[in-house]
Amino acid sequence: MNDALHNIRIWDDLARRQNAVNNLHPLVKLLTTIFYLIVVVSFGRYEISSLLPLIFYPVVIFSLAELPLGEVLKRIAWAMPFVIGIGIFNPVFDHQTVELLGFTISRGWLTFISILIKCVLTVAAGILLVATTGMERLGAALRMIRVPRVFVLQLLLTYRYISVLGNELARMLRAYSLRAPGQKGIKREAWGSLTGSLLLRSFDRAQRVYAAMCLRGFAGEYNSGAMAKIGAGDLGFLAGWSTFFIMARLYDWPLWLGSLLTGVF
């Protein structure tokens, strides 16, 4: 519980710092990230070596933005279980073998590794986007690509109230556990009343928030402030990385590099 709130705060804090990556235009970062993800997942199951150069993007952004390595790795590890759970069946079902350095391994393991690499790359790219942009600037970027106002405002409100309701729930759970020693979770009799009480409190809060919004002239329109213009540096960032992604997709650099070296030796 507190862990989840802590996570949101961490990325929020990181995104508020001033540095080269954080100061880039949010829309540019969003587009670069999406393009990166498309390129990563477009690789076939057996392409591993050609997938590797794409790791340059997260590594460079990560270093430029000076993010904490531990937190990023934790986030990636968190996302792994489902992917591993599905991917682990590849070695089970694909027994065709290939020879590699004199060892014989099944193709299933190779495809499994390919999935794992993709998981690391995609999750890292998503985390880097939030940790260098922050929710409110992402919201502004979404507005720029014409995502409806209703959705963006609602998204920002949800983000804002997670910590408020999270703390409210934490207090309720504490009160519950103090009177239910030794219980691990919430028992059946209290499912509805505990969750329902939180729900009704949230409901009342929503009404007060609505009143607060109306009192300050809200009439269904969400007016975000002026957005910074996209500068030459931003465009350069987008163009540079896009070129890199395309090159990485078209040519298998590691294979080429490897052939060069193994040819020499």
Binding site: L157, R160, V164, R208, A212, M213, R216, G217, N223, S224
Partner: peptide, 28 residues
């Protein structure tokens, strides 16, 4: 009329303080 609510969390509904303070003027 300007009303300040009892629970500031009801009144600060935007993601930054600045955006919150700007919310009213922007609506006008």
């Amino acid at each position: 009329l300007g009303m300040v609510f009892q629970d500031p969390d009801d009144q600060l509904f935007m993601t930054t303080v600045g955006d919150d303070v700007a919310f009213g003027p922007r609506n006008y």
